[in-house]
Design a protein around this nucleic acid. Structure first.
Ligand SMILES: [Mn+2]
Ligand SMILES: [Mn+2]
Ligand SMILES: [Mn+2]
Ligand SMILES: [Mn+2]
Lengths: 220, 220
DNA sequence: AATTAAATTTAGACAAATCTAAAAATTAAT
DNA sequence: ATTAATTTTTAGATTTGTCTAAATTTAATT
């Protein structure tokens, strides 16, 4: 089967919404895709006939296992291209998403598998999100938000909660990137800000908001 | 301005047809694009309103200078991706065209300029066709068909007349690729076949048909 | 010059993806 | 349990790109 760009964008959006919401609604999906609820309903009918979603009108919808498989293929393409753009073409992480949004729809299987090999079979994209392999399997992240890290335990930054250039700017300024090892030395109850220590650098403070957008894994 | 995939395919096809035909016709373009003459007429009207083609009904059409500029941008993207696919991902030349046909429509200028830089500003694609630079300028090829090369003059293979896997197979078998230096030792009048000499290898014969599909430049 | 043939364009239809406005169903609040 | 608010779906249009079949124009032949 072959899918249109619109179909692929819907499938991927449903996958992402399913991941963080117990039930995905028409309005939510319309918001995500910058489209209208009526358009979503139209597409759901189409995706149902193609057996990519379970759908009963007025009673919600979800991806079928076939739909999930397709979604993972698109996500694989998206994240491999993001990795390529960041690693080989030296784009900053806040620039790669929009371009990958287009590249992900070039669906030659051979292209993607060769790209994967060329890139050295990367496991995570520039935002720390896992890249599905050619079987659709990917690492299940054990990452937690920095705000819930125990004091004085070394952890490694493994991802970010959003990909805005504002966050990127702040992280650059504070010398934090994916892979950076750090500890939380103290938590201030007043505003939930955290005192952070990175190896050679003097300790410094970060806001609760920033901490919630930094994903970390306990050090190996 | 931003163009649809369909518009871009038409513009590029017109550019290519203009290159080898004194006048481009509706039927010819329909044939090229695997579409119907009626569809071509429809699109010509649209491209005219966008000032990309000169068009008077029943009296032919041609690209405006703006149209040519757009065409060169698409061709630049196409050929850079072909180069990437062949050089970095190790695709054979008969595989790169179809994939580039999709990739060429991802139109981020920054992406393409960075790709160009990453590839080392290549001058020709895997078929020996020149790649426009970011100003739209490209080498005007001084290549001639091997069938019109003078006897005993060293020349270098610089391109091919078609990109079929059949031609590729034959050239692989005969150890000829782009960059190969060779001489024509003898021309047989009976069938216009040519006796060819490549540096270390024993001389061998090639057909007129093959010779016409091999573009060469006089050696420097 | 008249006729025939070929190329091109128009007329009308259709599929994909979207929209607005109105109707229907579900959920929440009295 | 009604009523009100919210969500979702339908009805009917619109845009883009395509098609077939018919009409028109241009080119080629007698
Ligand atoms: Mn997309
Ligand atoms: Mn990402
Ligand atoms: Mn194309
Ligand atoms: Mn080429």
């Amino acid at each position: 089967m072959n899918f249109t760009v619109a179909e692929e964008n819907y499938i991927k959006a449903i996958w992402h919404l399913q991941r963080y919401n117990n039930d995905v609604t028409t309005n939510l999906l319309a918001g995500q895709l910058n489209t209208r609820p009526a358009s979503v309903t139209d597409m759901l009918k189409k995706l149902k006939t193609k057996k990519l979603v379970h759908y009963e009108k007025y009673h919600g919808f979800s991806l079928t296992s076939e739909g999930k498989k397709i979604a993972l293929g698109i996500i694989r393409r998206h994240r491999l291209w993001e990795f390529f753009l960041a690693e080989k073409l030296h784009f900053d992480w806040d620039e790669v998403h929009d371009i990958a949004e287009d590249l992900e729809h070039v669906s030659s299987k051979k292209l993607i598998d060769k790209l994967d090999e060329y890139l050295g079979f990367p496991k995570v994209d520039p935002h720390g999100d896992p890249i599905p392999d050619n079987q659709g399997k990917m690492e299940t992240s054990s990452a937690i938000g920095l705000h819930e890290l125990e004091l004085n335990k070394t952890a490694e930054v493994s991802g970010v909660g959003n990909q805005s250039s504002e966050l990127l700017e702040l992280l650059k300024h504070k010398n934090i990137r994916i892979g950076t090892k750090l500890e939380v030395k103290k938590r201030f109850e007043f505003d939930q800000s955290l005192e952070i220590k990175i190896r050679n650098l003097p300790a410094f403070t970060i806001s609760e908001q920033l901490a919630k957008n930094l994903l970390v894994k306990y050090g190996k």
